[in-house]
Amino acid sequence: MTRQRDDAHAQGVSMTTPRAGQAGPKLSATDISVFYGDKQALFDVSLDMPDRAVTALIGPSGCGKSTFLRCINRMNDTIPGARVEGRIILDGEDINDRGVDPVLLRARVGMVFQKPNPFPKSIFENVAYGPRIHGFASTKSELADIVESSLKRAGLWAEVADRLQAPGTSLSGGQQQRLVIARAIAVSPEVILMDEPCSALDPIATAKIEELIDDLRSQYCIVIVTHSMAQAARVSQRTAFFHMGAVVEAGATDEIFTNPRDTRTQDYITGRFG
């Protein structure tokens, strides 16, 4: 298993280098339908998500944004009775293919949840979790380097450098969410999925996370689900509007917010419903 992981790691590293030269979207979903038992949650959703950009998924509650997000790292596999149809192409490879191990996929596609969920471990161990299970560091100092650089990139290093052994749960909500982001980027993923990452945070912590998302954009393909129209406008370059389990409209964020083509989109972003 460790061998496989090392290969995956090597693969991951090699994939980051030629990324810039690639044409087309990093992630491309075609005709995705999701069923929870008999209930269909998504209807033939197709969406392209470019690399080194933030794609925002907006829409009213229960419209399928989070369900779609969970397809990208196959977290729907963990829900009993869930079934996914359609194709999601990541770097030319269908992630729903039989040959793809979801465990390896999730090392390439990181995820940040709505509620900060640090593990019951120290701050250091939280960030070291991914590198440890994927065998990324062979020595202690290497591991410490990964932890430090991840915390720095997540903008948390200055606040926790002197108490890395303190429990992750002792941090404030906003710090916990940045810790979780640091944990996700510690395994050098290519895609980061964020499921309403600021909905449990106060405005100041939210501003910090948004700033961080803007910084991370230069290195990752980021997909974010948000309920805040203003947040989508601030952090994203592309926006997709979901309604009743389908994508109504997708395009450049400026375009969607200033000149929506569909009346439902217009109604939603102007606050007439949702």
Binding site: M75, V103, R106, A107, G110, N117, F119, I133, H134, V187
Partner: peptide, 9 residues
């Protein structure tokens, strides 16, 4: 979920 999403078995 957090652990599985990190690619843990």
């Amino acid at each position: 979920d957090g652990s599985l999403a990190m690619g843990a078995t």
